[in-house]
Design a protein around this nucleic acid. Structure first.
Length: 758
DNA sequence: GAATAAATTGTTTTT
DNA sequence: CAATTTATTC
């Protein structure tokens, strides 16, 4: 294996093949590259590909790694097990789960299914639905599972008071329901695989023999179950190589335990520890800033990331008056960059939560900038799609009561809540799944509901029978037609109904696509794929789009230019983190992750005033901004005021540029003077500064989106040419000559117009 | 049991 | 603000 393309540390990592290895890989240090070379090197040293197991957190990471290994070693890589923890566990379970009393056709319950079970449970157990928040309970159940505690074990460790008893009962109910439905939730995928290992030593032995070499990517994000899984597998071979960066641990809320990586050397005293500290991604300024921010965390592994790259551009900081201005500024910068040096595909706009994307999207549309949003409401989360999938799930696994209840009256077939309740009662008494009572409903029901149930039962039997004769795509197509799912939307002519119909057709298309692409063309495999693969994994290569996504989903990616938006206290860090030092540290790591995505240019922005849900909030700038040394920043607030110092604000005590402190004034009235790099502005009200900033900034940002001569499309009046743009900020007016309607004037802020060409 | 109107309520991040 | 849940009427 030619390892000369690696730096000395990377080489060491790729050459240390035996025994426990911890690779501490800082952001942008060529982690994936090192890992793929190490795998190739293993194969080069005679290790058979099927003796290698590589675990990642996302399918995307898995696919990328597989591709890169294939490039190095050829088709041999096919035989290597490489995938997410979850998908590998499913693979293991599909083989042997019958040993645990489940059927192979088990269903995977996602969070929505979980909530349904929990709500049912609250009702059944007579608990107050309003007092206990189902979502909160779900995360508590998940928390218990991540610690590998059964309901009883959990109770033993709890306060054992009334509240604990209630939770214990609900958790028990939940487990029973899933078991009866032959269903596993995401956490179960790991737990049941573990149980299989523990309860059935021959199975464990088999996999220990099989996986002589185990590699784990993003080790800082493993939870206790994953940790145990890996330890169990490697106990004999001791050939475990983990890669990670404690500074990039951002999934604590999901049960990830940062101690797994911090304590690796305790777990394996003979471990080789290799640090990759040279960063190949970012300019010195960006790296410097990120390092300074993360240095505020305690209990880190010592690391000193460095780069040979030049200083590069300073980091741009922008204080917008409100979220619309922030969006406008971003669009303006995106445009300018695209025209001069950065293609759209090399730009990303990141935010803490999806709700922030909306305003930005609107502005992008109006500016005629092509973009793609990742995450958010996923295709498979749409109601009509979930309905369709529920049919398929029942066909595969008739015991899946949650899905059955979902579809029994969708589309409407006169089987109402009360009828379903009777059926459920009856099924429970007989200790049968709901499905098997359908063909023989209890006599307590009157004839009309009975008839409806009979028709539904017939439909489901018919579909189930077709499963073995039709191909996957034919089955999906038939199901969509026979169940009336399509019909309910095609009758109605509304726009919404049309979209839903389109979505259903897209699902049929997805099935067809799956049929063409996948080896295993079964319905089971299709459903599994739907459960485990997210939209994020289907990110297409190359097309010229600006990427919008959350900071979390940006991990592992890189872009020439990165915009981090909503840098405000209460947004980022999120409101729920500000009071808790540990959570703040995780937020800070998230900030670090975001900053280190940028190769050349980093933009940070915040809005002083932001409309969040139905009310306006005034947020202070994010404390993380203060942690960036001032010498690395360009304050675009200043620049904006310099360029367009319009005869703007009338009020007497305008704060001119020279009156502003040289330091960036992040100070808020309540903040202690003398805090790092920050000063208060004596005697000047925060609100006033904000409004001054807003009016000045908007003239430069908003106005420049449209200029005379641009061709635009108005929602009502069609195409037209911009004649003039007058005024600034919220008052700006735009004059457009329409092809069909003559010349009209609008408020720039609210006109439904889109630019179509310059 | 369905359709419509009213009210509530929630907002982190995702395999 | 939107999306889901609940009340009201037919």
């Amino acid at each position: 294996m030619d390892l000369t393309k690696l730096n000395p540390m990377q080489q060491q990592a790729a050459e240390t093949l035996q025994g426990p290895v911890l690779i501490l890989a800082g952001a942008g240090s060529g982690k994936t590259r090192t890992l793929t070379y190490r795998i190739a090197n293993l194969i080069d040293h005679g290790v058979k590909p099927w003796h290698i197991l590589a675990l990642t957190f996302t399918n995307k990471a898995a696919r990328e790694m597989r591709g890169r290994v294939e490039k190095l070693v050829g088709a041999d890589a096919q035989d290597m097990w490489l995938g997410t923890f979850h998908s590998i566990c499913v693979r293991i379970l599909r083989r042997d789960i019958e040993k645990l009393g489940y059927q192979r056709s088990f269903t995977i319950y996602d969070d929505d299914d979980q909530l349904r079970v929990i709500k049912d449970g609250l009702k059944t157990l007579g608990m107050d639905e309003n007092r206990s928040q189902p979502k909160e309970l779900r995360s508590r159940i998940s928390g218990a599972k991540n610690k590998m505690l059964t309901p009883d074990e959990w109770f033993q460790e709890s306060a054992r008071d009334f509240q604990a008893q209630q939770f214990h009962d609900l958790y028990t109910y939940y487990e029973e329901r899933l078991r009866a439905a032959n269903a596993l939730d995401f956490d179960d995928l790991l737990l049941r695989a573990l149980q299989l290992f523990v309860d059935h030593p021959p199975v464990l032995d088999y996999y220990r023999q099989r996986f002589q070499y185990v590699l784990v990517d993003e080790y800082q994000d493993t939870n206790m179950a994953q940790y145990t899984f890996v330890r169990l597998l490697t106990q004999e071979s001791r050939n475990l190589c983990v890669v990670g960066d404690d500074d990039q641990s951002i999934y604590g809320w999901r049960g990830a335990d940062i101690r797994n990586i911090l304590d690796f050397e305790k777990d394996f005293p003979d471990a080789r520890v290799i640090k990759l500290e040279q960063n190949y991604r970012s300019t010195a300024n960006i790296l410097d800033a990120a390092n300074q921010v993360i240095a505020h965390n305690t209990g880190r592994k010592e690391k000193a990331l460095w780069t040979e790259a030049g200083e590069g551009e300073k980091i741009h900081l922008y204080a917008a008056g409100d979220e619309r201005e922030e969006a406008a500024w971003i669009c303006e910068r995106v445009k300018k960059l695209q025209q001069t040096r950065v293609p759209y595909a090399q730009m990303a706009i990141l935010y803490r939560n999806h709700t922030l994307s909306r305003v930005i999207e609107e502005m992008l549309v109006r500016s005629g900038i092509p973009y793609r949003v990742f995450g958010g409401t996923r295709f498979y989360d749409r109601k009509e799609i979930r309905d369709a999938l529920a049919y398929l799930r029942v066909i595969v696994n008739p015991a899946d009561d949650v899905s059955l209840v979902r579809i029994i009256n969708t589309p409407k077939r006169s089987i109402g809540d009360s009828t379903v309740a009777v059926l459920q009662e009856f099924a429970k008494k007989e200790d049968l799944p709901l499905f098997s009572v359908l063909s023989d409903p209890p006599d307590t029901l009157s004839s009309r509901p009975k008839k409806c149930i009979g028709e539904f039962a017939l439909l489901m039997m018919k579909l189930t029978a077709l499963k073995d004769t039709l191909s996957l795509s034919e089955l999906v197509e038939t199901m969509l037609n026979e169940t009336g799912l399509k019909a309910q939307f095609s009758i109605e002519g509304s726009e919404e109904a049309q979209t839903r119909l389109d979505n259903l057709n897209e699902l049929a298309g997805a099935a067809k696509e799956f049929e063409n692409q996948s080896d295993d063309k079964s319905l089971e495999a299709f459903l599994e794929n739907v459960s485990l693969v997210t939209d994020l994994d289907n990110q297409e290569e190359a097309p010229q789009y600006v990427t919008l996504m959350t900071l979390h989903s940006a991990k592992g990616l890189e872009y020439d230019a990165v915009f981090m938006t909503g840098m405000e206290e209460g947004i980022f860090p999120s409101m729920r983190s500000t009071m808790d030092e540990e959570k703040m540290e995780e937020e800070r790591r998230l900030c670090y992750v975001g900053m280190t995505r940028a190769r050349k240019i980093l933009f940070l922005s915040y809005a002083r005033r932001r409309a969040i849900y139905n009310q306006i909030t005034h947020n202070s700038p994010s404390p993380f901004l203060r942690e960036i040394p001032e010498r690395l920043l360009i304050d675009e607030w200043n620049n904006a005021s310099r360029q367009s110092f319009a005869p703007e604000p009338a009020k007497p005590a305008m704060v001119s540029r020279k009156d502003r402190p040289r330091n960036l004034s992040f100070g808020t009235p309540g903040m202690a003077a003398g805090a790092r790099g920050a000063l208060n502005i004596p005697g000047v009200q925060k609100g006033f500064v904000a409004s001054a900033a807003r009016s000045v900034a908007s003239s430069s940002a908003m106005g420049s989106l449209f200029k005379a001569g641009d061709r635009v499309l108005h929602r009502k009046f069609g195409e037209g040419t911009v004649q003039a743009v007058r005024g600034a900020g919220a008052d700006a007016r735009i004059q457009i000559a329409f092809t069909a309607y003559g010349t009209k004037e609008f408020s720039l802020a609210i006109a439904p117009i889109v630019k179509i060409e310059e």
